[in-house]
Amino acid sequence: MDLSKRNRFSFSEFLFVVPALVFYLVFVVYPLLGGIFYSLTDWNGISPGFNFIGLDNYINLAHDEYVLGPLWNSVIFAFVSMILLNVFGLLFAVGLDNVAGKSFYRALFYLPSVLGSLIVGYIFSFLFTVPFSEFGKMIGWEALANNALGDPDLALAMGCFVATWKGVGWYMVIYIAGLQNVDRSLHEAAIIDGASAWKRFWSVTFPLIAPAFTINMILSVERAFKEYDLMFSLTGGGPGRASELLSMTIYNESFTNKRAGYGSALGVILFLIIVAVTLIQLAMLRRRENDIN
């Protein structure tokens, strides 16, 4: 067979990719470049003119408390919800392994994941305001009795809790799929060898669910950085700005405070964070997988 001929670029073949490429270029790449462009301007988002101000927006935001607070909130939110989602997701998956009514529980635990974040936030906002606070009064837990969402020290933590309630099923399902690869006889053998439960988990189970672990870590962090709806409907970023996430700041700067240029600069920062987090995690976890194998 004439390989060189077959390696040649074929236009008819390329046509197959064109629709996806066009929509992708128009609705993802162009706006991204536009965002980077506007981040170098002082555009207010509505008037026809703007000035090109170079990197001023980036220099300003480096010491702008107004922005650094939400940025830090986003980092905490991403870190805590990553831990909670993965720990509980894995625990649920392992716990469901030999429970009667396994598929019932699995279906139930996954249920919140199909709901929209917005509605989950609204419902929990109500739950914290009335039933949880009544419950708090009953057991004498003051933080809860006074509506934890109204406490600047707790609002973000409660956001993590609600995000976990909503998302844990998703991560559980992926861990269950990973655990199905684990060979039971290998486990039994390890038991007979007298390996401790921890050691069994670490040396037998974990290597096999490592791919699921990798993807779950990346996805949970990425989603947390992109979260908006949940916090918007749960706390609106309050009290004060104690639970405001970077995504909300971007939206508010761009549209409420009419600083589209500055908002875009924040957007670029968010993009860079996600790129960095993804690359670091990929590198770290791939290495771990290699070490274990």
Partner: peptide, 27 residues
Amino acid sequence: CKRFYNFIYVFFLCGMMVPFYTALVPL
């Protein structure tokens, strides 16, 4: 035509990391 399409593939994958908020205003 592996090289070319691999490039296209990676180009597509980069889009997974773009947060909606970065592109909000121009969008």
